[in-house]
Design a protein around this nucleic acid. Structure first.
Lengths: 215, 215
DNA sequence: GGAACCGCGTACCGTACGGTACGGTACTGG
DNA sequence: CCAGTACCGTACCGTACGGTACGCGGTTCC
């Protein structure tokens, strides 16, 4: 047998190489510009690579899409989780920060397009992009928000039984119908100021529902 | 010229005939069963009609989809708007009724599938199903809820400045992340009991935010 | 009965696109 | 200098599917 039969980066599983990242960025750009009639030909042309290479690296069209979603997810995860002392003002700031970040993400062109792709795929089964998007979007932020909520409860600033329920209420107050409207093609452009306003309103409402003045 | 050149129901514009309704129901059934790889061939077979007839009636595939969305929308609109006397309990009941209805709709297989189609279409421009779905879903219920909210304010039970904002908060509390999760393929099946519980919680929270005890 | 029409079934066409094959070029190690 | 590898560009194949054409049975109107 040949020495070390699988040395190169066939069918990208872990972190994509720089060149592969460039390809995935091309996919994202194409997706944002052209809507979803994304053809392998177009990707190859845009990324200046051959279709054969695409298939070698990503297996098939679904694999390319999956890798793209993963790639985008990997760059969103930035965000520090400072374990600072928790007073009421800090809690509020943390929640506000989450709300702004979340709105920024879901209102972004990239997120909208990727969610459209994932939703379309969820219709016809096979390789669930939906699951990936869900895991990296909603679940990921949930994993970071819920500890904050629980810390707030421990410190006596919040009152709730189930942190999941509280979190979902928070999401509802922040997101409202924004995401679905954007997905359906509603114009509705949010500028940064509007996002901050929305986020602040949502946090106020959340604290009105779940906050308590003092332990 | 032939006597009365356009007597029959070419390219369905207004209400579809009984036969046409049967075709549209076939489309819905197919959509629910088969996901979104809906082919004209499959529709013709399922509805026992010829493709030629489909094209004659609906123009093209988009036309068929549009007619289907319209048809489904037309049957959801049921629901009385009793202009009963408005006391606090009635207001709560009305809101609860809206919440349950809304959750029932968005959690339904048909709604999920139709929204998926519309969202996929919103990506590639052309005939905006998204707009239609939006108009018949969110906007339609908004048109019915907002008067109730305003009546509640007039009667002194609610306090808010902008009824649109209040309504969207209501929607957020009721729907939370349910719709997007379903669209992305999350299992998450809600039975009637859970829906009632969710709706009640949402209404309670809404009244906690916007209600006031007495004028 | 026959003409006109509707609509079903089926065969057919064109094309877009996923996937593959192959020649040509550049780089690397021996 | 040569083999091997990686990868680009392009030509190619197969097929699924949107859309059209046509023949035939049933119904309506004279």
């Amino acid at each position: 047998m040949t020495p070390s039969s699988a040395p190169s980066d066939e069918t990208v599983h872990d972190a994509p190489s720089a060149r592969q990242q460039a390809v995935l960025d091309a996919v994202l750009a194409l997706l944002v510009e052209e809507g979803d009639q994304l053809t392998m030909d177009a990707v190859a042309r845009r990324a200046s690579c051959s279709k054969e290479t695409l298939y070698k690296w990503f297996g098939d069209r679904d694999g390319l899409l999956t890798a793209t979603v993963r790639w985008q997810a990997s760059r969103v995860h930035a965000g520090r989780d400072a374990k600072s002392a928790l007073d009421a003002a800090t809690l509020r700031d943390r929640l506000l920060d989450f709300a702004v970040t979340w709105l920024d993400v879901i209102a972004g062109r990239t997120s909208v397009v990727l969610n459209r792709i994932a939703i379309a795929h969820a219709g016809s089964r096979k390789s669930n992009l939906g699951g990936i998007v869900l895991a990296n979007g909603r679940l990921a932020i949930g994993g970071r928000v819920k500890p904050v909520l629980e810390a707030g409860r421990t410190a006596g600033f919040l009152a709730f039984e189930d942190s999941e329920t509280a979190f979902r209420t928070f999401l509802g107050l922040v997101g409202r119908d924004i995401q679905i409207r954007l997905l359906l093609g509603d114009a509705l452009d949010l500028d940064a100021a509007e996002i901050r306003r929305d986020a602040a309103r949502a946090v106020d409402q959340f604290l009105a529902l779940y906050g308590q003045a003092r332990p």
